[in-house]
């Protein structure tokens, strides 16, 4: 026994690479268990056949992928591109993109203010931002629905009674409602990494820029933004990726009238009990989002964005 341990110790001492490997093994194990494992199950299902009543038959097939992209027309029964899936996919990407954009436009000034002007209350401000997470996500969405309803919702009542509007505005069960919900939900995901990168920003670099004649917006453009690009990248990824797969907000705040790909896929699994088709659609969703991420990160890397992360 002792000699085995001794020899193993010597091997690791002589091969630092292998040592790093063993040190990383908890991470590798974690990733395998919680990320690769479930994905593999989805991938496996996507190649199987669905039987009656949602049973699964172990006949390997590519049919689910074919059905993801080609569907029989409801009326003519002719094979056509699966416009429904593609449209909803496009809508999901567009909604996630707009959500990310709004989160950046709202989140950056907030993070900037807290990081640079928050003073000794910085941590309190950030805590306030995270505090909604202490209550259930669903409860918060319901609270928003109570605020947004027309005409009985608080916001409509406030606008009507202050005379700013004559007719109630529809803020729920449309694109506006879904966007409000998504921006609200993902804003903290944007603010936290932005705050972290702004927090780390060397204040004297900002002072130097002003001192060298940069007006506030010039300083923002040439110094602050480039130096917090790492945070911006993280914030975009952390907002965009979960936003694409959002399910609850379109269901509740969109009133099932503005659906996203998450709802479509959930319907395949639950309503249609078609786990194999749902899996194939999930695999395609994951692949496309991954491709977008890789292109984004690769371009960011090429433009020195990652170097900007100090």
């Amino acid at each position: 026994m002792r000699s085995v341990r001794h020899r193993l110790g010597r091997f690791l001492w002589q091969h630092p690479g292998a040592k790093a490997g063993t040190a990383l093994s908890p991470i590798v194990f974690w990733i395998a268990l919680f990320i690769v494992g479930p994905l593999f199950v989805v991938l496996f299902y996507s190649f199987l056949t669905s039987g009656p009543f949602g049973s699964i038959q172990y006949n390997p097939t590519l049919e689910n992928y074919q059905k993801t992209f080609v569907a029989n027309d409801l009326r003519t029964n002719e094979p056509t591109p699966n416009w429904l899936y593609l449209n909803i996919f496009g809508r999901s990407l567009a909604l996630a993109f707009v959500t990310t954009l709004i989160c950046m436009l709202l989140g950056y000034p907030v993070a900037y203010w807290i990081a640079l002007r928050g003073g000794r209350y910085k941590n309190l401000w950030i805590a306030l931002f995270i505090m909604p997470f202490w209550t259930s996500y669903v409860v918060r969405i319901f609270a928003w629905m109570f605020l947004l309803r027309d005409p009985s919702g608080f916001i409509n009542q406030l606008l009507l009674q202050s005379g700013l509007i004559q007719e109630p505005v529809q803020l729920l069960y449309n694109v506006t409602g879904v966007l409000i919900g998504m921006v609200y939900t993902y804003l903290p995901f944007a603010v936290i990494p932005l705050y972290a990168s702004l927090e780390r920003l060397d204040r004297s670099v900002l002072e130097a820029a002003s001192d060298l004649g940069a007006r506030p917006w010039q300083r923002l453009r040439y110094v602050t933004l480039p130096l917090t690009r790492g945070g911006i990248m993280s914030a975009c990824v952390l907002t965009f990726v979960p936003a694409v797969g959002e399910y609850l907000i379109p269901d509740l705040m969109g009133g099932s009238k503005v659906n996203m790909i998450g709802n479509f896929i959930a319907d395949k699994f639950l309503r249609d009990q078609n786990w194999t088709l749902g899996s194939a659609m999930s695999v395609i969703l994951i692949l496309i989002v991954m491709a977008i991420l890789i292109i984004y990160l690769w371009r960011g890397h090429r433009h020195g964005i990652l170097e900007g992360d100090f």
Binding site: S204, V205, V223, G308
Partner: peptide, 20 residues
């Protein structure tokens, strides 16, 4: 006058070079 409107310039203790 804010710093960017003054005709003075500063060399900071921490130098504050733009790393990017």
């Amino acid at each position: 006058l804010p710093p960017y409107e003054r005709n003075v310039s500063t060399v900071f203790q921490r130098l504050a070079l733009f790393p990017h």
